[in-house]
Design a protein around this nucleic acid. Sequence first.
DNA 1: TTGTACGCGTTATCAT
DNA 2: ATGATAACGCGTACAA
Lengths: 343, 343
Amino acid sequence: MAQTSKGNHPGESKEIMTIHDVARELGVSASTVSRAISGKGRIGEATRQRVLAFINDNQFHPNAAAKSLAQSRTFNLAIVMPEVKDLVDMPFFHTCMHGAEEVAQSNDYDLLVVTTDWSNLHPLERMVGNRKVDGIILTRTYENDPFVAYLKEARMPFVTVGRCYDPKVLQVDHDNAGACRELVTILFGRGLDRIAYLGGSMDQMVNLDRYMGYRQAYEAYRRKPDEEIIYKTLQNTAQIASAVDEILRKKVDCILCQDDFICDGVVRHLGERGVKIPEQIRIASCHHSRMLDNYPITITSLKFDTMEIGRKACQVLLDEIEGRKPKRLTMLDYEISLKESTK
Amino acid sequence: MAQTSKGNHPGESKEIMTIHDVARELGVSASTVSRAISGKGRIGEATRQRVLAFINDNQFHPNAAAKSLAQSRTFNLAIVMPEVKDLVDMPFFHTCMHGAEEVAQSNDYDLLVVTTDWSNLHPLERMVGNRKVDGIILTRTYENDPFVAYLKEARMPFVTVGRCYDPKVLQVDHDNAGACRELVTILFGRGLDRIAYLGGSMDQMVNLDRYMGYRQAYEAYRRKPDEEIIYKTLQNTAQIASAVDEILRKKVDCILCQDDFICDGVVRHLGERGVKIPEQIRIASCHHSRMLDNYPITITSLKFDTMEIGRKACQVLLDEIEGRKPKRLTMLDYEISLKESTK
DNA sequence: TTGTACGCGTTATCAT
DNA sequence: ATGATAACGCGTACAA
């Protein structure tokens, strides 16, 4: 019923139309059709409309592979996601992905997902080698980033979500250091002098930045943070728990958590120990995901628009690919959300 | 430094090797190289190894677009994700996506993400029309599914995560109805007779199935559920809250929540009302995400292996594409997790 | 076993 | 303004 009754030889139900079919049907040449579609090259407005009308009525779509081959462009982008084990970390990357996908779609690009750990370049190499994409979004950067190194060498356009030392690399980021510094400064203003820092690994740039911000705040006030209440290698819940226990003995005013995962662990353990927030100890987090909304108490934290960072990253990448020379570094706003946990 | 010093004309730094370059370099024909790579067609083991060694040493990757054009296959799959507003619903789709991506990768396929709402076929049409993928994974099915209708008509291979009335459609699913029936039956066994049902929209198949399971359990025991304590159209937190309030007045033994989102709303509102679980009311959920782990009390729920369903869906799709004739319906295990909330 | 020649569907260059 | 024709890089019947 849905078959067009016109068209090809009877019995041949493969209604795969090519640009030549359209041309024949309209009594013009294939190149004319191509021009009508692409808008490139001179073409009479009359025939142009005629072709456009036809391909619209007959649901013609150009074959992507052929187009790719002819122009050496795929109209595909890829987004590289880390293998993330913890539920709390997922929202960031996925929201970011959706943001990127939104922009990609509206520019008629498709988005490929690649999940890989920094130790495994393989999936990237295949994708880049095979020329399956025109550009790549890196959703996380490391101090010595193998992805960045590889993509530069391969001359594949890419943008990083997160900072990168190389100034020639396209970067989209929040001012993590600045935001943290400001947050700590505000906490100082509330009379909280002894602020513990709880962080996970320091290989990720975002973590380095936040930690820097923490120290900068101390330096700006010519104070020295107590190194005894700084933890930078908390990998799991157990380590967080014991760090919290130690901190409780060391009498701190506030705990600054590097991210949601840490914050989650801290709040839970405090709950188990029966320690009241903010009466007995104050809490703040350097990153807010809606995960934190689940707590009985609201948490003071830094807020970033994750969807927006995904959109921006994709936009910058497209600008680069299409020769619009975007600026190398795009900084996004943050928001400091002061809540009950630091009252 | 990374440039191979051999190769093309001096000054030409575009080291984009083609199958012909390889052929010339080795003194064989392009087709021989092609055969060596694909493994199809007769070829001497000696030359075969020689070619393989060369392309390995020189990092040759065949151009995906050309390959696509020649074989009418893209080695791309797409996964369609719903536009989901609530954080609690995200983990399912994303975990599923990662499962699919894992299988796709290990079969040298790439995975495209498309986020779209059932009312918007457009992104799908573009992708299918342009032949950018060889197959599609639908992560959610509706009673009258426009995606299913479209993909059938377009003759594009696809698999659904979730049930579909059409027996010819490839489906991967958990036995949602059976699982719910069993859960309710167990609750009966614990003396909980009046079990309220709280659900969101009934347009999704998964919800229909769960609701069916609930009713089946009642029928099996020749009981009739009280229609007054069945809610099927709870769209937001406010509606959930007022439903909970009504239910509290109607004196039920237990609340069965259709999914995490509902469960989340119920538990919170009960918390606000100061109603104790399980002392004053029991709670169970038809779906468990790790989100529920955040509660002070553990929740009785159905558990599904989401990553596995993504993997299976992708595997089935690949089997179909590569002509391995998978069975139409793949049922996955579930687990009933009895916890404190129904003590 | 290996090479030749053509096709895949589009874009781009050059005529007309 | 439009039409022929040659790439684009690979697979594959067919020939040798």
